[in-house]
C-alpha cells in the first residue's frame, strides 16, 4: 500500500500545535511507518509538493505570505485540517484585530523600541489589516480546536484519517486549553 502523503504547515501561531504533534511520543513510530512526511517545519523540503493527502495547518492568516501559502496548499491538498485555535478562530494572533494595524505596529516598533524605530518594510511579509481563520479564505475539511489540541487528540485525528475515516471530534475537543 502506498504511504499517505502528509504535510504540516506553520502560519501565524506559536508552534505549540507542532510541539503537541511531537508530544505523540513513541506513537509517532506507528504513524511514521504509515506516512511520508512530504513537507513540514520538521523536515527539510523547501517546496510544498503536489498531491498531498493531508495537511495539518497551524496558525491563522496574518500576512500576505500566509495568504499565498494557504491558497497554494489548499490547491495541492486533498484533506485540509485546521489544527488548533489560531487556525480555527484566529485566537491570540487575531487579538490585534480589535485595534488599527498602524497603531499596533507603532506600539511595537516605535513606542516600545529603543533602536531602529519603525516597522520593518523589507524582507518580511507585510501584515494584513485583519487576522482571519483559515476557513474565511479557503475551504477547510476538518476543524481541530484546542490551544493546543492535545497529543492524544492529534494522534486520534491522524489514526482515523489513516484508517480512511473522517474523525468525529465533537466530544473530544474544545476551544482553549
Amino acid at each position: 500500500m502506498d504511504k499517505a502523503r502528509i504535510a504540516t504547515l506553520w502560519l501565524d501561531g506559536c508552534s505549540g500545535c507542532h510541539m503537541s504533534l511531537l508530544d505523540i511520543d513513541e506513537r509517532l513510530l506507528d504513524i511514521a511507518s504509515a506516512i511520508e512526511l512530504v513537507f513540514s517545519p520538521l523536515v527539510d523540503n523547501k517546496e510544498f509538493p503536489e498531491n498531498v493527502d493531508l495537511t495539518l495547518v497551524e496558525g491563522a492568516l496574518a500576512n500576505e505570505e500566509d495568504i499565498e501559502k494557504i491558497k497554494m496548499v489548499r490547491a495541492r491538498t486533498k484533506l485540509l485540517v485546521a489544527l488548533g485555535d489560531c487556525a480555527v478562530t484566529g485566537n491570540v494572533p487575531a487579538m490585534r484585530n480589535n485595534f488599527v494595524l498602524a497603531d499596533v505596529l507603532h506600539r511595537g516598533y516605535v513606542d516600545n523600541a529603543t533602536a531602529n524605530c519603525g516597522p520593518p518594510v523589507h524582507e518580511v511579509p507585510q501584515l494584513e489589516p485583519k487576522v482571519i481563520p483559515l476557513h474565511e479564505l479557503v475551504a477547510v475539511d476538518l476543524f481541530v480546536p484546542g490551544c493546543p489540541p492535545s497529543a492524544d487528540l492529534i494522534f486520534f485525528v491522524l489514526s482515523e484519517v489513516l484508517a480512511g475515516r473522517i474523525p468525529d471530534l465533537s466530544t473530544r475537543s474544545h476551544f482553549g486549553n
Binding site: A82, V88, T89, G90, A94, N97, N98, K130, P133, H135, E136, V140, F143, V144, P145, L169, S170, T171, S173, H174, F175
Partner: peptide, 14 residues
Amino acid sequence: QKLGVNHVTLPYLH
C-alpha cells in the same frame, strides 16, 4: 463543545 460548535461560520466583529 456540547453543541458541536468547532468553528464559527460568521465573521468576528472584533
